[in-house]
Lab assay of single mutants.
Amino acid sequence: SEEKKKAKERLERLGASSELARELLDRANGNAEKAERLLRKLL
């Protein structure tokens, strides 16, 4: 979806690899905010 694509791009801008961004979104069930929080914990 367009929303998921935007979320993935945002995670990548924050420093996630394409693969990591995809994994985070999967774990967050597509929830962009939750995926971002997970990423911030990792960085």
Rank of each mutant, 00 (worst) to 15 (best):
S1D: 14
G15R: 02
R40Y: 14
D26W: 13
E23M: 13
R27K: 11
E19G: 07
L25K: 00
A16H: 03
L24N: 00
G30T: 01
G15T: 02
N29I: 03
L11N: 01
L38H: 04
E36T: 05
K34N: 08
E19K: 09
L43D: 03
E36I: 14
R40L: 15
E33F: 09
E33M: 10
E3K: 09
A32I: 15
A28D: 00
N29R: 10
K6F: 09
E33L: 12
S18C: 06
L39V: 01
L39M: 04
R22V: 14
K34I: 15
A32P: 10
R37S: 11
A35M: 03
S1Q: 12
S17P: 05
K4L: 15
A35G: 01
R27D: 04
E9N: 08
L38Y: 07
L43V: 06
G15Y: 03
E12G: 03
L39F: 08
L24F: 03
K6A: 13
K6P: 05
K5G: 08
L11W: 04
E23I: 14
A28W: 05
E3G: 10
R13Y: 10
A28L: 06
K4G: 13
G15N: 01
R22E: 15
A21F: 04
L24T: 01
A28H: 05
S17T: 12
E9R: 08
L14R: 02
E3T: 09
L25D: 00
L25V: 07
A21E: 01
K41G: 08
D26E: 14
L43G: 04
A28V: 10
K4A: 14
R37V: 11
A28N: 05
G15L: 05
S17I: 03
K5R: 13
S18Q: 10
A16P: 00
L11S: 00
K6V: 09
L42Q: 05
R13S: 12
E9I: 07
K6E: 11
A32W: 13
L39P: 00
E2C: 08
A7W: 09
S17Q: 03
E12Y: 05
E23F: 13
K6S: 12
A35Y: 03
L11I: 03
L42I: 12
K6I: 10
G15F: 04
K6D: 11
E2S: 12
L25R: 02
A21L: 05
L14W: 05
K6H: 11
R22D: 15
L43F: 09
K6N: 10
S1H: 12
L38V: 06
K6L: 13
A35Q: 00
